[in-house]
Design a protein around this nucleic acid. Structure first.
Lengths: 201, 201
DNA sequence: GTCTATAGATGGATAGAC
DNA sequence: GTCTATCCATCTATAGAC
């Protein structure tokens, strides 16, 4: 039971990471200074280095934690017993839920992954991109094999369209807005599966 | 006929802007230094200031020129005599063509508009966002009125879906790849209008 | 755990020679 | 039109006092 002993430290650490995540998401990683983070936390920039090695370490910890959780959810869906269409639906719903629950982390990944990938220590982000591709391609291929998805689609393009549309929503979605993240996901799924044209036309 | 006299200057200017645009698109505006641009142009950073006031002036000129052309095309489509579905189709095709012909400019706008909007001189970017919204909403509303688009869709969400999916393609599209920009646009339109589900299902 | 103080690097931009 | 040389602001990170 070491939890009580380490909890105060960890909660302060989490607090600082949350502040940093908010700024990284809002202004971008490169454009956020350690002074910005320290100011927002009510301390001086030098004090941050008591908690973290560097600015990079902060964003590293933020992204790792988030991605472990997200990909854990994808793995559960893939391993679950739902039919192919329902699995695809679940993956979309889980993604929109991530945009709601972890807006900052998603935004950071969307905006700064390309830049961070130029550093060796962030090479795991490329692995996650690859893993994400495999998840969506598997879901789509299973849907085609089961006959519920059109077989004439370019799989790679369809994957990119889904991935991009889902994640780019982080740029405009705000919790407490006119639509819940679930409503947005449902509307999106309706367009994705049935299209915007009238059935007759 | 002053063109011959100013052409050498203008072509050098255009050359430098093209180099800057490539770097801005690749690394981001903030993350590109004037020394990067000068190095790529084979001159020293101080020499750049003979051609441009500042780094901001460069990206300003790049974005203004591009957006004038793009919105000119949208206006032509709106004013043209095509039926609503064909107009929407044309707007998508023109956008994918822009991704092909002006990849750097689209990428800069996608990645750095939020940051640039924090400066007064780039407030026109907000006007262009508003104008873009009106173009797509008009095209969609006309389609619904004409009965070719589903009336049960959330117009605002559908607009965002289209806008995001079209422009985000700049992050992965490369000229000379497996698919031309027109083929990608056609596939995209197929998904957008008809969905990915099998018609029977 | 935070502060004071500052090192060391890098950034945008300028002045004047050529 | 480019180069030399440099200013000044800003940034990440460190060392040691409290």
């Amino acid at each position: 039971m070491t939890a009580p002993a380490t909890e105060p430290t960890n909660s302060r650490r989490s607090e600082l990471l949350a502040i940093a995540a908010g700024l990284f998401a809002e202004k971008g990683f490169k454009n956020t200074t350690v002074r910005d983070i320290a100011d927002a936390a009510g301390i001086l920039s030098g004090s941050l280095y008591h908690h973290f090695d560097s600015k990079e370490s902060m964003v590293d910890e933020i992204l790792r934690t988030f991605q472990e959780e997200l990909f854990g959810q994808y793995d559960e869906i893939l391993a679950g017993g739902l039919d192919p269409a329902a699995k695809l639906e679940q993956a979309v719903l889980v993604s929109f839920e991530a945009i709601d629950k972890h807006r900052d982390e998603v935004a950071i990944f969307q905006n700064d992954a390309a830049y961070l990938l130029t550093f060796d220590r962030f090479s795991y982000l490329a692995d996650r991109n690859q893993q994400s591709r495999e998840v969506w391609l598997t879901l789509l291929q299973n849907g085609i094999d089961a006959g519920v998805l059109r077989a004439d689609l370019d799989l790679e393009l369809t994957y990119r369209f889904i991935r991009d549309t889902v994640w780019v929503a982080v740029s405009w979605y705000r919790p407490g807005g006119r639509r819940t993240h679930t409503e947005i996901a449902r509307q999106y799924l309706s367009i994705l599966f049935e299209g915007i044209a009238t059935p007759a036309g």
